[in-house]
């Protein structure tokens, strides 16, 4: 059976069983592994895997745990877009030849290593068209576009040479204060 048919069958059966949304997304996430560019943008929360069969990546810092090429990475709690870690950049740097937007929105994510909340700046990388890898959409604390400082739907390539969107980063600005 062709892969895409199998995907449709398993996801439909998942819904029919009224499995949890997490479970449903888990099916999609599992199916995504090994398929670059399968378009799952709006439901990719906590489910996307790297686009190839590679070992989990690490930051190398035990206080910054997780794999920055997966949507589960703690800093990505409010990110929406292609992960720069899969695009030639990293969780806090843009791919070569792109330009980081100086403007963006900020959110707060909890670091499981120390249990503290950190302010995260979701800067987009700009100047080349969509990276197209490791799509990730998580919406904790996201608010509508008319509240731009709390919204991840906006193409934040603003204040750059042009607003062509390539990928998204998650830069730690510091500890969040209560």
């Amino acid at each position: 059976m062709p892969f895409f048919d199998k995907l449709a069958e398993t996801t439909t059966r998942g819904i029919a069983r009224r499995s949890s949304r997490r479970g449903f997304l888990g099916v999609l996430g599992a199916a995504l592994a090994g398929t670059a560019g399968l378009p799952l943008l709006p439901v990719a929360r906590a489910s996307t895997a790297p686009a190839s069969e590679v070992p989990p990546q690490s930051t190398g810092n035990p206080m910054d745990p997780g794999d920055p090429t997966t949507c589960d990475y703690w800093r990505y709690c409010g990110i929406d877009g292609f992960l720069c870690s899969c695009c030639g950049g990293s969780q806090n740097a843009c791919p070569p030849g792109t330009e980081m937007s100086p403007l963006t929105w900020v959110g707060t994510c909890r670091n499981p290593a120390d249990g503290l909340n950190y302010v995260i700046s979701y800067n987009d990388c700009c100047g080349k068209s969509s990276c197209g890898r490791c799509i990730c959409n998580r919406n904790e604390d996201d608010r509508p576009v008319y509240r731009p400082s709390a919204n991840n739907d906006i193409d934040w390539c603003i204040g750059t040479s042009n607003n062509v969107y390539n990928c998204s980063t998650a830069v730690i600005l510091g500890l969040a204060t209560e």
Partner: peptide
């Protein structure tokens, strides 16, 4: 409509 609505589910779609 999403049967498992809550904070952060506003873009997840529905059943």
């Amino acid at each position: 409509m999403n049967p498992e609505g809550g904070e952060g589910t506003h873009k997840d779609g529905g059943a």
